[in-house]
């Protein structure tokens, strides 16, 4: 599988480490009233789609960027690759 790194261009997937569902970016607020329940959902509940799945890949043997990749789990076709730090900022994770 080839991953089209947003900075480095196409790279062999062997350089990457799969890091799971990109929902891991949405870490709950530790001070929320129902923080424990939110963290249980965050820690344990995952969608398991047959089709497009948004997930984290770590370019461990490359530039150490975390990427958010949308990959079709039935075909391995990759439709989107973004830097995870950009996605995290976009989801309000600044500060």
């Amino acid at each position: 599988m080839i991953i089209n790194h947003p900075i480095l261009g196409p790279r062999d997937s062997a350089e990457f480490t799969y890091m799971g569902d990109a929902a891991l970016l949405d870490r709950p607020d530790w001070q929320a009233k129902d923080a424990l329940l939110q963290f249980i959902d965050y820690g344990y509940l995952r969608d398991n789609p047959a089709g497009p799945h948004t997930e984290l890949w770590y370019h461990e043997q490359g530039d150490r960027s975390f990427l958010v990749i949308t990959r079709d789990t039935t075909t391995h076709e990759i439709s989107s690759v973004k830097l995870a730090s950009d996605v995290a900022r976009g989801r309000g994770r600044s500060k």
Binding site: M19, L24, L56, Y58, F66, A88, R89, R93
Partner: peptide
């Protein structure tokens, strides 16, 4: 060592990017 660095990079880039 490698898995802790991976974990710390996850925290740095994905959880607290700024």
């Amino acid at each position: 060592a490698a898995s802790v660095l991976r974990h710390m990079e996850f925290a740095r880039q994905c959880l607290w990017p700024d």
